[in-house]
């Protein structure tokens, strides 16, 4: 991708920024300037939910150009907590352990790079939710 195109897509790739139609309430990612559902031009920026559940997935073993280093990789359809469906790579998860229903959260990763000297594209991928519970983890040492 060209440098201007990478720059243009930063808000929705880095921060899951979409647009919401104020007329019909539909949420879009990537952002739309005119609502494809109702034709309204009354849209505002809205960040998508960062967590969701895996609905379906596939494993890419013959990737398109620029993604070869990451193969084989999982691409999943994720239903976010705000109801939006999003396609993304699933990382930190072995192919043997991925399953629909898996709780996922957005993470910031390298998407691809333009050779050794070109731009590095960054953006969202999803990983299994990092669980923590402070109540269950008191200080064992002191």
């Amino acid at each position: 991708m060209s440098a201007p195109a990478v720059r243009r897509e930063i808000p929705y790739r880095y921060r899951l920024m979409g647009t919401k139609c104020l007329n019909c309430g539909a949420l879009f990612h990537p952002p739309q300037r005119i609502c494809p559902k109702c034709g309204s031009k009354d849209l505002v920026e809205e960040e998508l939910a960062w967590r969701g559940r895996l609905v379906a997935y596939t494993v890419i073993r013959r990737p398109p150009k620029g993604y070869e280093d990451y193969k084989p990789y999982i691409v999943g359809l994720i239903e976010l907590k705000d109801g939006k469906l999003i396609l993304a790579q699933i990382v930190d998860c072995d192919i043997e352990e991925v399953r629909p229903g898996l709780k996922l959260e957005a993470t910031f990763r390298r998407i691809r790079e333009d050779g050794k000297s070109g731009i590095i594209e960054y953006g969202y991928k999803f990983r299994p939710v990092i669980e923590w519970n402070w109540q269950k983890k008191p200080n064992p040492e002191k």
Partner: peptide, 12 residues
């Protein structure tokens, strides 16, 4: 991981 670097970890 192969798609992580100092900047992605800094963001996390």
């Amino acid at each position: 991981a192969i798609d992580e670097d100092a900047t992605t970890m800094a963001v996390e």
